[in-house]
Write a protein that binds this DNA or RNA. Structure first.
Lengths: 134, 134
DNA sequence: TTACCTGCAAACGCTTTGCATCATA
DNA sequence: TATGATGCAAAGCGTTTGCAGGTAA
């Protein structure tokens, strides 16, 4: 571990951070890149990956893996939460995490520490229930 | 949805199933393929993937995603469970699912139904805690 | 001016798929 | 014999990396 990088300020870094702040949900690198592109922001996909990984490494962003791809979200704001995902249309709703005490009790009973956890609940949202009932 | 496949019995299917039974931890498809190869069992990697996916689809095997690859394990019992995963060495321990009532309460409060859920808790296992403390 | 950052494209690792062949039922 | 299963290799997908040129400090 040598001296850390000067952390230069760039247009692209800003764009990634800003866009990340605008999504309150997890986004994939590709998704973020597409959103920036739609906005007219010119940025390489590799740069998006590099920025997101840097944010994740520094602890500024949270990541989860879903369905083979890595999703990122700025962390630190409102504490972490999980998602209720509609299996049909993909709509997501934030839900509160399970009790930390419960997690800790389970982990420590096996001698593990708790660093992070993921929880996702899948079902049908109200709209898709209507569709299916038809 | 038409009639389902006859499910033919083959040497390869047996080999995958047997090898899977021999590991008490999660294994990747590549890992399982290598183990079979070491045993002298001739089998294509694609077949291993196909068998594992078939097992997972049918509900006979559990899968988790760790570090970019999918890991499989026979799920021994009917009731489903979750995992406590060591971030360092990958060791996993089964844990009980959160209360169904809790899940249902959360989902229905948003008008969702509950079909399935995933929960993974990451931390350090006892051995890796010692390593880190060093 | 320096050296970090970027963009492009090629490389990468894991997984899936097309297709001709094999073998179970 | 008929058809699902297999093996091989190529394609696919998300992600990372090498390198030449760009740009903040």
């Amino acid at each position: 571990m040598t001296a850390d990088s000067p952390a230069r300020h760039t247009r692209q870094k800003d764009a990634v951070l800003r866009q990340l702040r605008e999504c309150d949900d997890f986004v994939s690198a590709q998704d973020l890149h597409r959103r920036l592109d739609d906005e007219g922001v010119k940025i390489g996909l590799a740069t998006v990956y590099r920025q997101l990984n840097a944010l994740a490494d520094s602890g500024a962003a949270d990541t989860i893996r879903l369905d083979g791809q890595q999703l990122f979200r700025l962390c630190g704001d409102d504490g972490h939460h999980h998602h209720l995902v509609c299996r049909e249309c993909g709509k997501t709703v934030e839900i509160d995490p399970p009790s930390e005490a419960w997690l800790r009790r389970i982990a420590t009973s096996h001698g593990f520490t708790v660093e992070s956890h993921t929880l996702e609940v899948f079902g049908l949202c109200p709209d898709c229930q209507k569709e299916t009932a038809r």
